[in-house]
Design a protein around this nucleic acid. Sequence first.
DNA 1: GACTTTGGTCAGATTCTCTGACTACTTTGG
DNA 2: CCAAAGTAGTCAGAGAATCTGACCAAAGTC
Lengths: 146, 146
Amino acid sequence: MAAESELNTGVLLFLPYRALENRIFAVLAESGHEDVTPAQARVLQRVGPDGTRLTELAEQAQITKQTAGFLVDQLEKAGYVRREPDPSDRRARLVCLAEKALAAKEIADGVVAEVEKEWEEHLGRRRMKQLREALTALREITDPWA
Amino acid sequence: MAAESELNTGVLLFLPYRALENRIFAVLAESGHEDVTPAQARVLQRVGPDGTRLTELAEQAQITKQTAGFLVDQLEKAGYVRREPDPSDRRARLVCLAEKALAAKEIADGVVAEVEKEWEEHLGRRRMKQLREALTALREITDPWA
DNA sequence: GACTTTGGTCAGATTCTCTGACTACTTTGG
DNA sequence: CCAAAGTAGTCAGAGAATCTGACCAAAGTC
Protein backbone atom coordinates (compact mmCIF):
# COMPACT_ATOMS: atom_id res chain seq x y z
CA MET A 1 0.00 0.00 0.00
CA ALA A 2 1.09 3.54 -0.66
CA ALA A 3 1.20 6.32 1.91
CA GLU A 4 -1.99 6.65 3.95
CA SER A 5 -3.29 9.62 1.99
CA GLU A 6 -2.80 7.99 -1.39
CA LEU A 7 -5.07 4.96 -1.48
CA ASN A 8 -6.22 4.04 -4.92
CA THR A 9 -9.73 4.96 -5.93
CA GLY A 10 -10.83 1.34 -5.91
CA VAL A 11 -10.13 0.91 -2.22
CA LEU A 12 -11.63 4.31 -1.56
CA LEU A 13 -14.86 3.21 -3.19
CA PHE A 14 -14.89 -0.16 -1.52
CA LEU A 15 -14.45 1.00 2.06
CA PRO A 16 -17.67 3.00 2.39
CA TYR A 17 -19.53 0.43 0.32
CA ARG A 18 -18.63 -2.33 2.70
CA ALA A 19 -19.37 -0.20 5.74
CA LEU A 20 -22.86 0.43 4.40
CA GLU A 21 -23.43 -3.20 3.52
CA ASN A 22 -22.33 -4.30 6.99
CA ARG A 23 -24.77 -1.90 8.59
CA ILE A 24 -27.62 -3.17 6.44
CA PHE A 25 -26.93 -6.81 7.25
CA ALA A 26 -26.64 -6.06 10.96
CA VAL A 27 -30.03 -4.35 11.10
CA LEU A 28 -31.64 -6.93 8.83
CA ALA A 29 -30.41 -9.70 11.12
CA GLU A 30 -31.80 -7.93 14.18
CA SER A 31 -35.20 -7.61 12.59
CA GLY A 32 -35.79 -11.26 11.82
CA HIS A 33 -34.09 -11.49 8.45
CA GLU A 34 -30.99 -13.31 9.62
CA ASP A 35 -31.72 -15.95 7.02
CA VAL A 36 -30.75 -13.84 3.98
CA THR A 37 -27.14 -14.52 3.04
CA PRO A 38 -24.96 -11.98 1.23
CA ALA A 39 -25.06 -14.10 -1.92
CA GLN A 40 -28.83 -14.24 -1.84
CA ALA A 41 -29.03 -10.52 -1.15
CA ARG A 42 -26.96 -9.71 -4.20
CA VAL A 43 -29.59 -11.44 -6.33
CA LEU A 44 -32.61 -10.22 -4.37
CA GLN A 45 -31.47 -6.63 -4.74
CA ARG A 46 -31.79 -6.90 -8.48
CA VAL A 47 -35.34 -8.17 -8.69
CA GLY A 48 -37.41 -5.41 -10.24
CA PRO A 49 -40.92 -4.36 -9.15
CA ASP A 50 -42.55 -6.25 -12.03
CA GLY A 51 -40.39 -9.33 -11.70
CA THR A 52 -37.15 -10.18 -13.42
CA ARG A 53 -35.99 -13.17 -15.40
CA LEU A 54 -33.42 -15.49 -13.96
CA THR A 55 -31.00 -14.92 -16.80
CA GLU A 56 -31.16 -11.19 -16.31
CA LEU A 57 -30.56 -11.52 -12.59
CA ALA A 58 -27.55 -13.70 -13.31
CA GLU A 59 -26.07 -11.21 -15.75
CA GLN A 60 -26.44 -8.25 -13.47
CA ALA A 61 -25.13 -10.06 -10.43
CA GLN A 62 -22.31 -11.44 -12.60
CA ILE A 63 -22.93 -15.05 -11.74
CA THR A 64 -23.96 -18.01 -13.89
CA LYS A 65 -27.62 -18.71 -14.37
CA GLN A 66 -27.13 -22.00 -12.53
CA THR A 67 -25.88 -20.15 -9.47
CA ALA A 68 -28.69 -17.65 -9.78
CA GLY A 69 -31.16 -20.52 -9.95
CA PHE A 70 -29.67 -22.07 -6.86
CA LEU A 71 -29.95 -18.83 -4.90
CA VAL A 72 -33.47 -18.09 -6.12
CA ASP A 73 -34.50 -21.60 -5.02
CA GLN A 74 -33.37 -20.74 -1.52
CA LEU A 75 -35.03 -17.33 -1.57
CA GLU A 76 -38.21 -18.98 -2.73
CA LYS A 77 -38.13 -21.58 0.03
CA ALA A 78 -37.48 -18.83 2.58
CA GLY A 79 -40.49 -16.92 1.27
CA TYR A 80 -38.73 -13.91 -0.21
CA VAL A 81 -39.67 -14.46 -3.84
CA ARG A 82 -42.18 -16.24 -6.03
CA ARG A 83 -41.69 -17.54 -9.55
CA GLU A 84 -44.46 -16.67 -11.95
CA PRO A 85 -44.84 -17.59 -15.59
CA ASP A 86 -43.74 -14.90 -18.00
CA PRO A 87 -46.75 -14.10 -20.18
CA SER A 88 -44.55 -13.03 -23.06
CA ASP A 89 -42.37 -16.14 -23.25
CA ARG A 90 -43.40 -19.59 -22.18
CA ARG A 91 -39.84 -20.74 -21.58
CA ALA A 92 -39.26 -18.01 -19.05
CA ARG A 93 -40.43 -17.33 -15.54
CA LEU A 94 -40.41 -14.06 -13.67
CA VAL A 95 -38.86 -13.92 -10.26
CA CYS A 96 -41.09 -11.61 -8.19
CA LEU A 97 -40.65 -10.12 -4.75
CA ALA A 98 -42.93 -11.53 -2.05
CA GLU A 99 -44.18 -9.70 1.03
CA LYS A 100 -41.23 -10.73 3.12
CA ALA A 101 -38.79 -9.23 0.65
CA LEU A 102 -40.71 -5.98 0.49
CA ALA A 103 -40.56 -5.75 4.27
CA ALA A 104 -36.82 -6.44 4.25
CA LYS A 105 -36.35 -3.90 1.50
CA GLU A 106 -38.13 -1.28 3.54
CA ILE A 107 -35.82 -1.93 6.46
CA ALA A 108 -32.75 -1.87 4.24
CA ASP A 109 -33.86 1.39 2.64
CA GLY A 110 -34.23 2.86 6.11
CA VAL A 111 -30.66 1.93 6.99
CA VAL A 112 -29.39 3.37 3.72
CA ALA A 113 -31.18 6.64 4.43
CA GLU A 114 -29.75 6.73 7.92
CA VAL A 115 -26.20 6.06 6.76
CA GLU A 116 -26.48 8.55 3.93
CA LYS A 117 -27.56 11.12 6.51
CA GLU A 118 -24.52 10.35 8.65
CA TRP A 119 -22.28 10.71 5.66
CA GLU A 120 -23.84 14.00 4.73
CA GLU A 121 -23.31 15.25 8.27
CA HIS A 122 -19.67 14.28 8.08
CA LEU A 123 -18.98 15.62 4.60
CA GLY A 124 -21.28 18.59 4.58
CA ARG A 125 -24.17 18.96 2.20
CA ARG A 126 -22.05 20.35 -0.59
CA ARG A 127 -19.45 17.60 -0.69
CA MET A 128 -22.09 14.89 -0.35
CA LYS A 129 -23.85 16.31 -3.36
CA GLN A 130 -20.58 16.44 -5.32
CA LEU A 131 -19.88 12.85 -4.36
CA ARG A 132 -23.22 11.58 -5.58
CA GLU A 133 -22.98 13.66 -8.69
CA ALA A 134 -19.52 12.37 -9.59
CA LEU A 135 -20.55 8.76 -8.92
CA THR A 136 -23.66 9.17 -11.03
CA ALA A 137 -21.58 10.52 -13.89
CA LEU A 138 -19.14 7.65 -13.49
CA ARG A 139 -21.98 5.25 -13.95
CA GLU A 140 -22.14 6.26 -17.59
CA ILE A 141 -18.86 4.50 -18.25
CA THR A 142 -18.89 1.78 -15.60
CA ASP A 143 -22.45 0.46 -15.54
CA PRO A 144 -23.29 -1.83 -18.45
CA TRP A 145 -26.98 -1.48 -17.56
CA ALA A 146 -27.01 2.28 -17.24
CA MET B 1 -35.20 0.17 -7.53
CA ALA B 2 -36.09 3.82 -7.62
CA ALA B 3 -36.06 6.01 -10.70
CA GLU B 4 -32.88 5.78 -12.74
CA SER B 5 -31.46 9.02 -11.41
CA GLU B 6 -31.99 8.11 -7.77
CA LEU B 7 -29.86 5.05 -7.08
CA ASN B 8 -28.73 4.79 -3.51
CA THR B 9 -25.19 5.72 -2.70
CA GLY B 10 -24.25 2.11 -1.97
CA VAL B 11 -25.02 0.97 -5.49
CA LEU B 12 -23.35 4.08 -6.85
CA LEU B 13 -20.15 3.16 -5.00
CA PHE B 14 -20.31 -0.48 -5.94
CA LEU B 15 -20.73 -0.05 -9.69
CA PRO B 16 -17.41 1.66 -10.42
CA TYR B 17 -15.67 -0.53 -7.85
CA ARG B 18 -16.72 -3.68 -9.61
CA ALA B 19 -15.89 -2.24 -13.02
CA LEU B 20 -12.36 -1.54 -11.80
CA GLU B 21 -11.99 -4.95 -10.21
CA ASN B 22 -13.14 -6.66 -13.39
CA ARG B 23 -10.58 -4.77 -15.40
CA ILE B 24 -7.80 -5.71 -13.02
CA PHE B 25 -8.67 -9.39 -13.09
CA ALA B 26 -8.93 -9.40 -16.85
CA VAL B 27 -5.45 -7.93 -17.32
CA LEU B 28 -3.97 -10.06 -14.56
CA ALA B 29 -5.33 -13.18 -16.24
CA GLU B 30 -3.86 -12.14 -19.59
CA SER B 31 -0.45 -11.67 -18.06
CA GLY B 32 -0.02 -15.09 -16.55
CA HIS B 33 -1.72 -14.56 -13.22
CA GLU B 34 -4.90 -16.43 -14.01
CA ASP B 35 -4.26 -18.51 -10.93
CA VAL B 36 -5.16 -15.80 -8.41
CA THR B 37 -8.79 -16.09 -7.42
CA PRO B 38 -10.84 -13.13 -6.19
CA ALA B 39 -10.87 -14.53 -2.67
CA GLN B 40 -7.09 -14.87 -2.66
CA ALA B 41 -6.72 -11.39 -4.10
CA ARG B 42 -8.77 -9.88 -1.31
CA VAL B 43 -6.27 -11.28 1.15
CA LEU B 44 -3.18 -10.61 -0.94
CA GLN B 45 -4.13 -6.98 -1.35
CA ARG B 46 -3.86 -6.49 2.38
CA VAL B 47 -0.38 -7.85 2.90
CA GLY B 48 1.81 -4.91 3.88
CA PRO B 49 5.37 -4.28 2.66
CA ASP B 50 6.87 -5.59 5.90
CA GLY B 51 4.59 -8.57 6.17
CA THR B 52 1.29 -8.90 7.96
CA ARG B 53 -0.03 -11.39 10.51
CA LEU B 54 -2.70 -13.83 9.52
CA THR B 55 -5.09 -12.56 12.16
CA GLU B 56 -4.76 -9.04 10.90
CA LEU B 57 -5.34 -10.12 7.32
CA ALA B 58 -8.45 -11.96 8.42
CA GLU B 59 -9.83 -8.95 10.27
CA GLN B 60 -9.29 -6.55 7.43
CA ALA B 61 -10.68 -8.89 4.82
CA GLN B 62 -13.56 -9.65 7.19
CA ILE B 63 -13.14 -13.39 7.08
CA THR B 64 -12.27 -15.89 9.81
CA LYS B 65 -8.65 -16.64 10.50
CA GLN B 66 -9.28 -20.21 9.36
CA THR B 67 -10.41 -19.00 5.96
CA ALA B 68 -7.49 -16.61 5.80
CA GLY B 69 -5.14 -19.47 6.63
CA PHE B 70 -6.68 -21.57 3.90
CA LEU B 71 -6.24 -18.81 1.31
CA VAL B 72 -2.69 -18.00 2.41
CA ASP B 73 -1.82 -21.69 2.08
CA GLN B 74 -2.86 -21.52 -1.55
CA LEU B 75 -1.06 -18.25 -2.18
CA GLU B 76 2.03 -19.77 -0.64
CA LYS B 77 1.83 -22.87 -2.83
CA ALA B 78 1.33 -20.68 -5.89
CA GLY B 79 4.42 -18.67 -4.95
CA TYR B 80 2.80 -15.35 -4.16
CA VAL B 81 3.69 -15.19 -0.48
CA ARG B 82 6.11 -16.59 2.09
CA ARG B 83 5.52 -17.09 5.80
CA GLU B 84 8.30 -15.86 8.02
CA PRO B 85 8.60 -16.02 11.79
CA ASP B 86 7.60 -12.85 13.57
CA PRO B 87 10.62 -11.74 15.59
CA SER B 88 8.47 -9.97 18.13
CA ASP B 89 6.15 -12.88 18.93
CA ARG B 90 7.05 -16.53 18.69
CA ARG B 91 3.44 -17.60 18.23
CA ALA B 92 3.01 -15.44 15.17
CA ARG B 93 4.23 -15.59 11.61
CA LEU B 94 4.36 -12.79 9.09
CA VAL B 95 2.86 -13.28 5.69
CA CYS B 96 5.22 -11.56 3.23
CA LEU B 97 4.88 -10.78 -0.46
CA ALA B 98 7.10 -12.83 -2.77
CA GLU B 99 8.45 -11.74 -6.17
CA LYS B 100 5.47 -13.06 -8.05
CA ALA B 101 3.09 -10.98 -5.96
CA LEU B 102 5.15 -7.84 -6.46
CA ALA B 103 5.03 -8.40 -10.21
CA ALA B 104 1.27 -8.90 -10.09
CA LYS B 105 0.89 -5.83 -7.94
CA GLU B 106 2.81 -3.77 -10.45
CA ILE B 107 0.47 -4.90 -13.21
CA ALA B 108 -2.59 -4.23 -11.07
CA ASP B 109 -1.32 -0.77 -10.19
CA GLY B 110 -0.87 -0.07 -13.87
CA VAL B 111 -4.48 -0.99 -14.59
CA VAL B 112 -5.68 1.15 -11.70
CA ALA B 113 -3.71 4.11 -13.05
CA GLU B 114 -5.14 3.55 -16.51
CA VAL B 115 -8.71 3.32 -15.27
CA GLU B 116 -8.30 6.33 -13.01
CA LYS B 117 -7.12 8.24 -16.03
CA GLU B 118 -10.18 7.20 -18.02
CA TRP B 119 -12.40 8.27 -15.17
CA GLU B 120 -10.67 11.60 -14.93
CA GLU B 121 -11.14 12.13 -18.64
CA HIS B 122 -14.82 11.41 -18.28
CA LEU B 123 -15.43 13.48 -15.17
CA GLY B 124 -12.97 16.25 -15.72
CA ARG B 125 -10.05 16.97 -13.45
CA ARG B 126 -12.09 18.99 -11.00
CA ARG B 127 -14.83 16.47 -10.37
CA MET B 128 -12.36 13.61 -10.15
CA LYS B 129 -10.51 15.52 -7.48
CA GLN B 130 -13.73 16.22 -5.61
CA LEU B 131 -14.64 12.55 -5.82
CA ARG B 132 -11.35 11.39 -4.34
CA GLU B 133 -11.47 14.08 -1.72
CA ALA B 134 -14.99 13.17 -0.61
CA LEU B 135 -14.14 9.47 -0.51
CA THR B 136 -11.01 10.13 1.49
CA ALA B 137 -13.00 12.14 4.00
CA LEU B 138 -15.60 9.40 4.18
CA ARG B 139 -12.88 6.99 5.14
CA GLU B 140 -12.66 8.71 8.50
CA ILE B 141 -16.03 7.30 9.49
CA THR B 142 -16.17 4.11 7.44
CA ASP B 143 -12.68 2.62 7.68
CA PRO B 144 -11.97 0.95 11.02
CA TRP B 145 -8.26 0.90 10.12
CA ALA B 146 -8.04 4.51 9.02
C1' DG C 1 2.51 -19.37 39.08
C1' DA C 2 -2.39 -19.66 37.81
C1' DC C 3 -5.59 -17.28 34.66
C1' DT C 4 -6.75 -14.97 30.54
C1' DT C 5 -5.86 -13.42 26.05
C1' DT C 6 -3.96 -13.88 21.52
C1' DG C 7 -1.93 -16.16 17.11
C1' DG C 8 -2.57 -19.95 14.66
C1' DT C 9 -3.93 -24.81 13.24
C1' DC C 10 -6.90 -29.11 12.53
C1' DA C 11 -11.26 -31.32 11.37
C1' DG C 12 -15.72 -31.33 9.43
C1' DA C 13 -19.79 -29.28 7.50
C1' DT C 14 -22.15 -25.90 4.70
C1' DT C 15 -22.59 -22.54 1.18
C1' DC C 16 -21.45 -20.69 -3.16
C1' DT C 17 -19.94 -21.08 -7.57
C1' DC C 18 -18.58 -23.16 -11.83
C1' DT C 19 -18.55 -26.36 -16.27
C1' DG C 20 -20.95 -29.40 -19.12
C1' DA C 21 -24.95 -31.50 -20.88
C1' DC C 22 -29.74 -31.35 -21.62
C1' DT C 23 -35.00 -29.94 -22.53
C1' DA C 24 -38.36 -26.76 -24.03
C1' DC C 25 -39.71 -22.76 -26.31
C1' DT C 26 -38.73 -18.74 -29.62
C1' DT C 27 -36.87 -16.49 -33.49
C1' DT C 28 -35.17 -16.26 -38.07
C1' DG C 29 -34.31 -17.12 -42.99
C1' DG C 30 -35.60 -19.23 -46.52
C1' DC D 1 -44.41 -23.31 -42.90
C1' DC D 2 -40.27 -25.53 -41.60
C1' DA D 3 -35.47 -26.27 -40.36
C1' DA D 4 -31.67 -24.14 -38.06
C1' DA D 5 -30.03 -21.35 -34.61
C1' DG D 6 -30.61 -18.99 -30.43
C1' DT D 7 -32.50 -18.29 -25.62
C1' DA D 8 -34.61 -19.57 -20.82
C1' DG D 9 -34.02 -22.60 -17.60
C1' DT D 10 -32.82 -27.13 -15.21
C1' DC D 11 -30.03 -31.28 -13.72
C1' DA D 12 -25.76 -33.38 -12.22
C1' DG D 13 -21.33 -33.22 -10.43
C1' DA D 14 -17.19 -30.98 -8.93
C1' DG D 15 -14.39 -27.43 -6.88
C1' DA D 16 -13.70 -23.18 -4.14
C1' DA D 17 -14.68 -20.40 -0.17
C1' DT D 18 -16.54 -19.95 4.09
C1' DC D 19 -18.00 -21.09 8.72
C1' DT D 20 -18.18 -23.34 13.72
C1' DG D 21 -15.99 -25.80 17.24
C1' DA D 22 -12.10 -27.70 19.41
C1' DC D 23 -7.52 -27.34 20.18
C1' DC D 24 -2.27 -25.97 21.18
C1' DA D 25 1.38 -22.81 22.22
C1' DA D 26 3.17 -18.41 23.45
C1' DA D 27 2.27 -13.79 25.83
C1' DG D 28 0.41 -10.87 29.04
C1' DT D 29 -1.81 -10.07 33.84
C1' DC D 30 -2.42 -10.42 38.75
